[in-house]
Amino acid sequence: MSTLDLPLVLAGVMVVCLTLYVIMGGADFGGGVWDLLASGPRRHQQRALIADVISPIWEANHVWLIIVVVILFTAFPKAFSTLAVGLHIPLSLMLVGVVLRGSAFTFRAYDSRRDTVQRRWGVMFAGASTITPVLLGICAGAVASGQIGAARTGDFTALYVTPWMTPFALLTGVLTLCLFAFLAAVFLTVEAEPGALQDDFRARALWSALALGAAALALRWSAQTAAPHVSAGLTRGVLPWAVLLTTAVISVICFTALWTRRYRLARGSAVAQVTLIIWGWAFAQHPYIVPETLTIEAAAAPTVTLRLLLIALCVGTVILVPSLWYLFRVFSAGKHEKHE
């Protein structure tokens, strides 16, 4: 390639950031789901571990979402406005979830230790952590299905509700929830000290892996009619099949690793699995950014903007990577000695 295909590169960077958001931010939401579902004799320890792990990092993890939005409106302004109009309702609801999740989590940490007070914020935090991923998934599913921007005439429902109120989009919402919960459970097996608590999260990881698998199969099946473009993209040529096969193999590895208590391996393969799912979707959707309405090319901002944005992102990365590395190092070293 003599000249860089800038729109494609930036779309790629956006998918990288989205992947990072799903892996890091998604796991924080998943932690909230397990807070909601905490049960058994160790439910207090379960909640405490989740809070300990999330507290120092959730705000940094959350910034990935903001970066995705910023890239979207700078590099693909037409896509941003199309999505913001078509998905106005689920996005607004998702924002309410984002606000409630973050603030309730913080309020719980700083409010009275009394059980009733803790419980109240806990329920709000956990509830919002469960609903928000579903809404995020609905938005993603609506995009993949090619319904956004398709209906240009009609009443309020036809324009602003029907495009995302579809079985396919709802199923994507469920998948996203399972995915986040699965990631969180796998990560928590690594964070927990060996013993009963770790086993609690192992069981949760295994069950959510099964749920995730079921949701993924159902979604793949439903995509044939509901998301024809993406579905076709998943069967075109050798590459998609290779990706599909790899994902399947990695899922088996992950499940086996959990079964045999090799948690670090399980964590690595869970991350790989999620990455493949998102990139599979991105490749299948190519060349569209909003399937069958806007291509990456057509939505792209002028070249100057793209080039400068790419430079800014590179410079930012140089600052970001060491900072993030430091953050995770500070909070993973000597974890097990604390609180004793």
Binding site: V70, F73, A75, P77, A312, L313
Partner: peptide, 11 residues
């Protein structure tokens, strides 16, 4: 967006 996306991304 293409004109003032820059400060937002630096932000």
């Amino acid at each position: 967006g293409p004109i003032i996306g820059m400060p937002f991304s630096l932000e």
